[in-house]
Design a protein around this nucleic acid. Structure first.
Lengths: 195, 195, 195, 195
DNA sequence: ACAGTCGGGACACCCCGTTTGT
DNA sequence: ACAAACGGGGTGTCCCGACTGT
């Protein structure tokens, strides 16, 4: 990897944390300059502008968050343990990008304008949902889960309550709300088990 | 109400929508000038600065959102119908302030810095939670709900999944995710009914 | 005069000196900020950009230079004394704008591109030439000067040799070259006197 | 001449035209890259920086201008025809370096700062003046010119009025002003002839 | 001998939030 | 309530000179 690519990668990583914490408007090039040790010229060498950088930073942040959530999932056998692992990862596992869930942050932040970013968030949510509904459908195929389970609805429910719980947890600066959500979702998953 | 107070009120209302849609950093005085038809001086006559205006705008936005969610709640008899009404209001009823839930938006937006605003959000969430756990506790007292129901946890769960569902719904620009959440919460509430 | 106009005037005056000394490309907003004590916002409040400011600065600089050259001219009787006064003013009288003759400086500086500025210089030269040829023609009318004198040519000659002499004088940092030109032009003027 | 030296020479030639037209600040390495077809590395191989290149470019430009002005001078017999030839060359003969007289341009351009360049211009003017005053003094020695003629003053006068005339001619994009100066100088020279 | 890459630095222009006069 | 004024900071652009290959 060339020196330029390393620099570029470093910029993206730092930018991911900054954009995730402060939002697009709230983040300035000066913040990025301080974080990377580069000057404006050094940054603009690698990116055409703030927007492109924000897009790549989101890709990175979401990739890291997704990896954290899927950590060890395949070590579990069965749909229900796998989803419980996802939920536990969401609650416990901090990804390398500070500031909470990039999905939630960027969805709210890009709610007005910034369509390119918004489209990327939409796709990320869609992929995550598919990943979980896929686990559910595989479980149904293997008769681990009751037939007739609405995989999409369950996936939506998991995402919605986790993200909402995260918002509350960050507000209170403790994990209580997330643990409440976690307990509820685990109970819900158990209730889906085939007899 | 004096003319000055009317103007002040108009500013707050317009500001509420703008801040709720664009966030604190993303909103400019120019936006407010355009929306109110006033000049900067006219705005600064009533508020000491952007921060104070943002605080009052949040108060207004949250007040309106809370009113919308509690609409007709007292016309319902029993804890479960009342909470179902709250949920239905959340899903269907648009408040006068555009841009989604001020709680969610402001919680994410004030996540970095802006402690005064953050504190106000925290209090608003706390009040809303208390309002709903109060309904639950009253239901338990009247033996409508099973004894041993964790009122705080249920309230937290409702808020978390509604807010998360709203985020998803706004992202997709349709209510599907919210309706999934609504159906699930209604089922949950029904399961709490005393035998 | 309002405070804003005073500020604007101060900016133009300072800018005139800076542009006259360093040229358009060589002058930066930072130079102007330092000279005026204003920040960028304070300057851009009054001018749409560097180009407009340069135009107004040239107007000011040329106005001051022209006034200095025409100083006391009308106190002299007769075309020849009047033109000698112009020449003496050119040689001796420093205008309030440092950096030499704005005509010469700006003509050279705007030689490549910058058509708006160039056009203003052309007009300034044309006006100055007309002013002097007018004096000559008036002198001919009053029979102070020989009939058949080519007023335009004489005016051109005066301007060319003074400006060229000024260039040499500034290069040597002494007035020798200008005094040589002055002596020659005075002799030339005397030779035009009607018998 | 080696290939490297040819490249170096080509860079200097192109640079001479660019610096002469646009000035030191107004010329960019990108301009030089475009003109030479070389990349930055190719230029920096031969020169330590922009300043050194500007110095050499001036040397080249002035050398070419001086050669053009002295063209065929030695074919003329006598001081007066020789100087008339110089003047005619100045008016008519375009050197290979576009943008007007390097002396005038660089004198104005280096008026603020850039002492190294300024010193070179001073020397060039001094040499040119000496060349012409030398012709004059030789003419006096041969009794072609009146004794008592101030050779330095005449040379200064020629240079000043030619350079000033050139400035006016370039401004008007026609040679009128220069021809006026030429006619006057020729008359002046004729008036110096010994009886 | 030259090309391409890289990053520090400065610059122009713009806009924002705030203060001041009126 | 407005208008003008101003300090400050933001983004995007360009340029120069050094460095890395080849």
């Amino acid at each position: 990897m060339s020196k330029g690519d390393e620099t570029r990668q470093r910029i993206v990583q730092e930018a991911a944390g900054i954009f995730n914490r402060k939002g697009y408007e709230g983040s300035s090039l000066a913040d990025l300059m301080e974080a990377t040790g580069l000057r404006k010229g050094g940054i603009y060498r690698h990116f055409s502008g703030k927007e492109q950088l924000a897009l790549e930073a989101f890709e990175y942040a979401w990739g890291a968050a997704r990896d954290a959530r899927l950590h060890d999932v395949d070590f579990n056998a069965g749909a229900i343990p796998q989803l419980k692992q996802v939920i536990a990862n969401f609650v416990e596992r901090r990804g390398p990008v500070p500031g909470g869930c990039p999905l939630l942050n960027t969805a709210i932040d890009s709610d007005d304008g910034n369509d390119a970013l918004r489209e990327r968030v939409r796709k990320a949510v869609s992929d995550w949902k598919k990943r979980m509904s896929g686990i559910l459908r595989a479980g149904m195929k293997k008769d681990e889960l009751r037939a007739g389970t609405d995989a999409d609805a369950i996936a939506t429910l998991i995402i919605a309550s986790l993200e909402g719980g995260l918002m509350l947890a960050r507000l209170d600066k403790n994990l209580t709300a997330l643990r409440v959500v976690q307990a509820h979702l685990e109970q819900l998953l158990d209730s889906l088990a085939a007899d």
